[in-house]
Amino acid sequence: MNKKVLVIDDEETIRKFIKIQLGKAGYEVKEAADGEQAMVQLKRDRFDVLICDIMMPRKNGWEVLKEVRLNPETSEIPVIFLTAKNEDNDMFKGYELGATYYITKPFTKSQLLFGLNTIFDRKKNSLY
């Protein structure tokens, strides 16, 4: 069964690009244009990983992450942050809140896939 990914970003082109590439790599991709839409999707569906932008209207990445971690049903889902804020402070804040991985914009297909692979490899290892 294909892994299910939720891409949360207010930038349509980025969502499109991720969907194309992950689709090719065998993931099932769903999209959300902001944090609130994401929360709706999360209630409706189960996801294996979230790829989430930080700076978004209405509900930003931090808030999404916080809610995801607080909810027992979603608290174990790995979250990859996409951010243009490549400052150390932001990274620490993200990890503190429970982010699993970080990808700074702009990024390429291989960076994206590498990130996902790392997560799932780790998850696989932790299972054994």
Partner: peptide
């Protein structure tokens, strides 16, 4: 700038 730039690179 990074947002559209990511789009450009990705697309």
């Amino acid at each position: 700038i990074n947002n559209p730039l990511t789009g450009i690179i990705g697309m």
